[in-house]
Amino acid sequence: MRFILPILTVIGLIIVLWYAGAVALNAKWTLDQASRAGTTVTFTELVADTMSQGRPRLPAPHQVGAELWNTTIQPCLEGRRAGTLECVTNRRSLFHHAWITLSVTLAGFGIGTLLGTLLAVGIVYNRAMDASVMPWVIASQTIPILAIAPMIIVVMNAVGLQGFIPKAIIATYLSFFPVVVGMVKGLRSPEVMQLDQMRTWNASASQTFWRLRLPASVPYLFTSLKVAVAAALVGTIVGEMPTGAVAGLGARLLAGSYYGQMVQIWSALLMAAGLAGLLIFVVGAVDKAVSKRMGYRA
């Protein structure tokens, strides 16, 4: 209750502002139409019209909600009645596009996490790598990697790779760096005292790694995983924009922008937000479960 009430207030405020914005931004079109038709509109008519335009500059929340319903639940219900898998196969269904985006995100996130962890182990155990690679890892974070996404897609296309792999590469690249930085910090987090203790027990290097360094790095790993999964999703969405916008949430965004379909853009955006929330929630839940089992304070 301590948190729910303030959060609900903020969300309510956002929705109120959204409606106000819809009225303010869409009023011009309504007024233009009215003056062209030679009629005047009262304030209530104006407000009612701004809420229900076919091509609004800012669709009202209920319009986006209706669009979301029509593109997610509706095809599912129809599919169930017809006994088919309309939910995920229908090109009109947002679940279909969300699933494409999600699968690429997860693939990129998984590979990125694995590679990042391996590189972090290399950096921690090899002095030359530490001195030479680490500054570049940090510097590379300041480079707008998303900006080269279209190039990667086009170049891969020229080599004959299409669809899944180029997008996954971008997602991998983006989720890779937070993991490297976090894991290097985490693998170095055991104190000298603890490392000395391992030495007095005559622990081999691999034992020190598996029983001290790796468990100690887990909290750091999860902190960076939360950043990494969000980055992977952003990378996938941007990666879906070039090359004709075929499928996925990014493609819906671009298609909506081409045809001026604001409602479609907003519903794709909300779907992407939901996906991001889901991914972060799952990572957070796994984090909590693992920390609890390992005896960290969750």
């Binding site: 303030p6 903020v10 931004l25 500059r57 800012l58 952003v234 941007v238 907003w266 955006l269």
Partner: peptide, 27 residues
């Protein structure tokens, strides 16, 4: 306000806001 805005802000910071780019270009 802090208790309300912080969780919302934290969530929004993780969202793919870049997707709003076409909207702003239109506006």
């Amino acid at each position: 306000w802090k208790r309300g805005l912080l969780p919302v802000g934290n969530f929004v910071a993780a969202l793919p806001i870049i997707g709003m780019a076409p909207i702003f270009v239109m506006w």
